[in-house]
Nucleic acid binder design. Structure first.
Lengths: 154, 154
DNA sequence: ATCAAAATTTGGACAATGTCCATAATTTTG
DNA sequence: CAAAATTATGGACATTGTCCAAATTTTGAT
């Protein structure tokens, strides 16, 4: 697996470093991970890695199309491995849980805008908002968790 | 017009204050406005208003369904007046420009998730990503403006 | 109108997320 | 292996947003 990551980096003209390999592994192991969480996990592998390297690497992976970034409201950016299939996301308004949803169309942009305003559109990002099963049951209590609340628990 | 805003507030059991009326007017006048920009504009009307009041008010308006919040990557949250028609947005990857796009369906959620993972879905938010007409032409230069760059210009 | 209670606003501190920059370290190239 | 290029590091800093307690304003009932 690590070998595949190395190949991916080289194919994009990037130097191969332990930091990058580890982060590729990390977002592959933990879809929808934050930069902070990725830093924690990468540090267990590497001993240490700077916060800046994590941001640099994740941003670069997104730029190169090796990772995807989603940014739900009230949440730091989440990174995922799964790329190129234009899948979508289900986000819980209460607890922030994120699930993947396959795109019925499967290629980008999967939707036609009713009027493109002369934009050149390359992607239609769909976010379904609602309540996850867990938050449906404890509906009446602990609603509206703040970002802090959510973060504290993690 | 101000009168309508007053009515809207009262209907939702909210006190009527100059700050709230001004902010309702502001997001009506300037769709896709940031909290900071709204603060600037509101201050011209009111003389002064605290940053906290702006955030409180905008958050409250969103919560009550009197405003909508969108949050494109690399941009602070944007607020808009237009509510309840489940329209969508076109976002320029280069300069961050945002345009409204009507939803062909018109009511929420306008899309069916391919698998709802047992979520109760109430909205499908669609963001079309691409390049606006202006950024298509000056394609080769000034790509990838950072948030800073964008902010500086505004 | 007036007053007490409730709701709102204020300002200052603080938190979270992310970027800038110059230097050090590592990786690649020849 | 050494030079050149790329990457990583850490510390400062910017931006966006929230917490909190005190002051002010609005509301509802006389």
């Amino acid at each position: 697996m690590i070998d595949t990551f190395e190949t991916q980096l080289r194919e994009h003209g990037l130097s191969v470093t332990a930091q990058r390999l580890t982060l590729l592994q990390t977002i592959s192991d933990y879809p929808h991970i934050t930069a902070d969480q990725a830093t924690e996990i990468a540090r267990k592998q590497l001993g240490s890695i700077s916060r800046q390297s994590v941001y640099d690497t994740l941003n670069m992976l997104v730029e190169k199309g090796l990772a995807r970034r989603i940014q739900p409201f009230n949440s730091p950016a989440l990174f995922e491995d799964r790329v190129g299939d234009n899948h979508h996301h289900l986000v819980c308004r209460n607890c922030g849980a994120v699930e993947d949803v396959d795109c019925a169309v499967g290629y980008r942009p999967c939707l036609q805008a009713s009027d493109d305003n002369n934009f050149v559109i390359d992607e239609a990002e769909v976010t379904y908002w609602g309540l996850c099963p867990k938050c449906q049951s404890k509906n009446s209590k602990s609603r509206k968790s703040t970002p802090q609340t959510r973060k504290a628990k993690s």
